[in-house]
Write a protein that binds this DNA or RNA. Structure first.
Lengths: 153, 153
DNA sequence: GACAAATCATCAGTAGAACTGACGATCAGC
DNA sequence: GCTGATCGTCAGTTCTACTGATGATTTGTC
């Protein structure tokens, strides 16, 4: 049991043993490096996430994209407004359901996406370099496992 | 090379292969579960982080705590204001340097911390249950490695 | 076919956290 | 003793997230 006082420190878990801390800061560090790598492509990390779900076909409508990315549907509006204004994505009403907006990459959008994804892959490879290929794959697999076991789509 | 069109999807990396996505959502999922587990203790996830660096002795002053946690020094003021108001932490000016505030847990603060940390540990164990002890340790180690290799204290 | 309920995108307003720039108080170097 | 730097604090700005409402449209029910 922890006692108040200077000797108690040894009984408290060090911060680099706390999974929440490790996940948060690993995410932050990678995001920070990615942001720098994407700077001259003209898109942000958030944008790249949106582009990815559109390009992969995992999402067709705005709400699908929002759900996959875990962002609010109302935030997606502004996010797409900016991308549409840059000529990277285009919205058109669905023919089956005219309430929905089908979002797609423009020709220019594909070029931007290809370039941004290339920069990102490079950054990620660099980020996990010391783990080796097997270690990086193991890390991904472990994260996939905990996510799927904790109610993730 | 990616071509615009419906056949391009297969050539785009799936989202659950993207490390940034995995890290972000794993962090979010754990934070979400922790928040629920801490609800009736009366502290937030952010608070627990602060309590931990104080309890472990990793930080004595406000700025040290802010630096370790990666939060802004100005945000730390409000964070500590709330904890002090709840009687969980106490500020006193350092005797060596009277610009600095030494922050410490009160007796009640230690009790709250002990309880919150216990809830958190349980949540974390549950979160990584399917990985097994070795798998969870491997995940932590991999995260520690990439962090230290990417300029982290 | 007509009506009620649900869904999609949007917008306005609100709340929270991060960051900037400034301030007074204090310390360290010269 | 003076100058420059550091610590905690505060005010103001920005960014994101979330709530609640709206209009347009679809789906289900009678």
């Amino acid at each position: 049991m922890s006692r108040p006082g200077s000797e108690a420190a040894g009984q408290v878990r060090a911060r680099d043993d706390v999974l929440g801390y490790l996940l948060k800061h690993a995410h932050l560090a990678l995001e920070h490096r990615t942001q720098a790598a994407l700077a001259d492509v003209g898109v942000t990390v958030r944008d790249l996430g949106v582009l990815r779900v559109i390009a992969s076909g995992e999402a067709q409508s705005q709400q699908e994209a929002a759900a996959v990315l875990g962002v609010d549907r109302t935030s997606m509006v502004a996010l797409l407004d900016a991308l549409e204004h840059q000529g990277i994505v285009a919205r058109r009403p669905s023919e089956q359901d005219r309430r929905r907006n089908i979002i797609a990459l423009t020709g220019h959008g594909w070029e931007v996406f290809r370039q941004a994804e290339s920069r990102y892959s490079e950054t990620e490879r660099d980020f996990t370099a010391t783990l080796g290929d097997a270690g990086a794959a193991g890390l991904r697999q472990a994260l996939r496992t905990v996510l799927s076991e904790n109610g993730h789509p």
